[in-house]
Amino acid sequence: MLTIWFMLCVIFAAIAWFFVTFNVLVSLKIRVDNAWSQIDVQLKRRHDLIPNLVEAVKGYMAHEKDTLERVIKARTQAIDASSFKDKAQAENFLTQTLRSLFAVVERYPELKANQNVLKLQEELTSTENKIAFARQYYNDEAQRFNTKIQTVPSNIVAGMANMQSKVFFEIEDASQKEPPQVKF
């Protein structure tokens, strides 16, 4: 009699553990998806800020038309991209063009006196930081999720529920990994 009760308890405990672990895995997965959409929010904000900055500096930087055009083209490309790979590439390219635009702005001291330009530059820098932080948060959550589904007790539940590991947000462009060459 006692053994039957004991076995029932064990079975209930096992079932309870399954439920709890499954719920934990599902919550982590939803957090990862949420983190992914946060990146999109920041990317869209950047798309909206860029035209204003270009308008504000256009008057001062008459000779730097090609830099400005590259930024605008990169922005259009980023908005039009559809697949994940294209999007990631387009956004990385946009970051590069913005960086070269900021470097050029440094050469115009009158721009530094314009509060409007400084404010826009600050907003763009802040948005770049937010994109970086959103990616970092996504990677941290993906790491937590992947660890949970691959370590021993929970990988049983993960296997039963057919959960896949999440992909990390890595730098796709191989050229960004090389140190910059200094040529004189």
Binding site: N34, Q38, E122, S126, N129, K130, Y137
Partner: peptide, 15 residues
């Protein structure tokens, strides 16, 4: 405004 941007950035980093 600068400070508010910094707080927003950190809030993005915390999810």
């Amino acid at each position: 405004q600068y400070f508010r941007n910094i707080v927003d950035e950190v809030s993005v980093a915390t999810g």
